[in-house]
Design a protein around this nucleic acid. Structure first.
Length: 547
RNA sequence: GGCCUUGUGGUCAAGCGGUUAAGACGGAGCCCUCUCAAGGCUCAAUCCCGGGUUCGAUUCCCGGCAGGGUCACCA
């Protein structure tokens, strides 16, 4: 068979360059020894999720701790799934979490010398290489229809055989020249398949940068490399792009592990040097007692917008991801509490081999700790940013008075006190936490644990002596006095020694006052709360709090 | 089902032939304390099972079992 003729009949494009030209066009990158080139290669199917961030963070850290390059490539070979604005969304979302690209699609950089970074715009390179494979007898046209393929699959399934297009099932593999041209003449659509040279009885030991040694068999599937629309499949585009973009380390989800044999064969057949691979484990969750991969459809916590709208501090999400990405990160952080997480020596060998369950408690803890490192002003800026995007109109009115909010935050955060408080987990809960400082969102729950007469007597007694000028100890002395006046123990030690002698302790008295003023049995330092509210509002609330 | 892969407390996990089997989150308790939070201290809780190899296995080998992934003209 005249393969040259076949190739140019199948792929008649006359704008294709000789293969060496592509090599010249994308020369080796000039980087330091040990520098890794990594990439994020999403398909523009919608919004980026936590799993993408997880993987992107690993890519970004590895590239940037080795003096390498982290680039963005868009795998838009499946136009059915394309969503407008997805690329911008990927960049914006990652940027919000502090993950930035050096090069790639929609990235403004002088480094953009390996583009185009959209696969659809690279069609000629793929076609040139597919053409070459046909000429070399390593690829062939396949005219099988979807129905035929399905029928074969059913037959294979019924016979408990391996499904796919291989061996005797590869009907078009040995089509005669006449048959091929007859099909072409009849206008039958075709795909280009790899003529696999592999044999599944041959085992290959492969070293994965994350998973370690894994054993796979050679590929024997005649996979599609060019779809009927002339656009490559993922496998083919991956081999060509990562070769010409000079990716040194491919980090991708472990769902790709099973198609690794295909990639191994493709790199071999194309004569490309194989990059290193690191297959990451996926983030899991327990659902109805079953452990499963976090799903884009079912799990809102997978969406990055979820973290934004809930008001998680972006750096906290990143640090949480770092703790599951590199198990020694937490330890390092405790030793270097002031250091930026970027100073941590990220190591791909420390990445876990099995899927981690997503742990919201852990995230909350990290978020709380992270927020507690901010000043009141920084906290205000963060909360205010959330409020302007996700808050209510009332929130926005409240936050317009920055000085007042900062006064509250100083209290909530315990700034200036002996111990820094860690009350705020995320912006949303933080904003709700201070609602009681505003009359229009003050929603008291008068859950007193004492009878009406006692409550009123305590409140009246305190209201009569309250002075805004009192410092904490003077204030507390008055509370103790009210306690004594109403049959409560003024000293905790007295109460503990003889609880039966008292109605309760000074703590119970403070609770009554706290409920009246804040509407809740728990709050930060009551004396300071009253100070922030001011005398007139404090007195008004005390009065309103009587039963 | 075939193939690949994983298996240390509830969760994330150190460990890499001999350890009282780290640490963190979560849980319980105590202290502190006007409550809560924070902080300090303490406690409970783990090597999937069965065979080997070995003086000795959480660690090495084999076999089960359980979990995960994957079997497209999707990526």
């Amino acid at each position: 068979m005249d393969l040259k003729k076949l190739a140019s009949t199948l792929i008649p494009d006359d704008n294709l360059l000789p293969l060496e030209e592509y090599e010249k066009q994308y020369p080796e990158r000039q980087l330091e020894k040990g520098a890794e080139v990594t990439r994020l290669a999403p398909s523009p199917t919608g919004f980026i999720h936590l799993g993408n961030l997880y993987s992107a963070l690993a890519d970004e850290r590895i590239a940037h701790t080795t003096g390498g390059i982290f680039y963005l490539r868009i795998e838009d070979t499946d136009l059915k799934r394309k969503v407008d604005g997805a690329v911008e969304s990927v960049i914006r979302s990652l940027d919000y979490f502090g993950v930035n690209f050096d090069e790639g699609a929609e990235i403004d950089s002088p480094l953009n010398k390996y583009g185009p970074y959209y696969q659809r715009r690279r069609a000629s390179i793929y076609r040139a290489y597919a053409k070459d494979l046909i000429e070399r007898g390593l690829a062939y046209p396949c005219f099988c229809t979807e129905d035929e393929l399905n029928a074969v699959r059913e037959e294979q399934t019924a016979n408990k055989e391996i499904t796919g297009y291989y061996g005797k099932y590869a009907k078009c593999r040995n089509l005669s020249e006449e048959q091929i041209y007859a099909n072409l003449k009849a206008g039958k659509p075709f795909v280009i398949r790899l003529k696999s040279q592999g044999d599944t009885s041959n085992k290959i030991t492969f070293r994965d940068a994350i998973k370690g040694d894994i054993t796979v068999t050679e590929n024997d599937q005649d996979v599609v490399i060019l779809k009927s629309d002339g656009i490559p499949t993922y496998h083919f585009a991956h081999a060509i792009d990562d070769h010409f973009m000079h990716t040194t380390l491919v980090i991708r989800g472990e769902e790709w592990l099973s198609s690794l044999p295909i990639h191994l064969e493709l790199f071999k057949v194309l004569g490309f040097r194989l990059p290193k691979y690191g297959h990451t484990c996926s983030l899991m969750k327990v659902d109805n007692g079953v452990k499963r991969k976090l799903s884009k459809r079912k799990d809102p916590e997978l969406s990055l917008d979820y973290y934004r709208s809930a008001g998680y501090y972006p750096k906290a999400v990143v640090k949480y991801l770092m703790t599951i990405l590199n198990s020694n990160f937490e330890e390092w952080e405790r030793k270097n509490p002031q250091a930026d997480y970027r100073d941590f020596k990220f190591s791909i060998s420390k990445m876990g081999k099995s899927g981690a369950l997503f742990d919201i408690d852990k995230l909350n803890d990290i978020s709380k700790a992270e927020l507690s490192t901010l000043s009141a002003e920084q906290t205000y800026d963060f909360l205010n940013g959330w409020v302007s995007e996700f808050g209510t109109d009332k929130d926005r009115q409240h936050f317009a008075d920055g000085q007042y909010i900062i006064k509250i935050l100083n209290l909530i955060c315990g700034i200036g006190g002996k111990k820094r408080r860690k009350d705020i987990v995320r912006a949303e809960s933080g904003v709700r936490m201070i609602d009681y400082f505003f009359d229009d969102t003050f929603a008291p729950d008068y859950c007193y644990r004492f009878d009406k007469a006692t409550v009123n007597s305590v409140i009246d007694g305190f209201a009569a002596v309250y002075s805004e000028a009192d410092d904490n100890s003077a204030w507390f002395a008055k509370v103790k006095q009210i306690a004594a006046d109403n049959g409560f123990a003024a000293e905790m030690s007295d109460y503990k020694a003889n609880p039966e002698n008292y109605k309760g302790s000074v703590a119970d008295v403070a609770e009554i006052l706290r409920i009246a003023v804040t509407g809740m049995p728990n709050s930060p330092d009551l004396c300071t709360v009253m100070g922030i509210l001011g005398a007139s509002r404090t007195l008004a609330r005390l009065n309103a709090g009587k039963r």
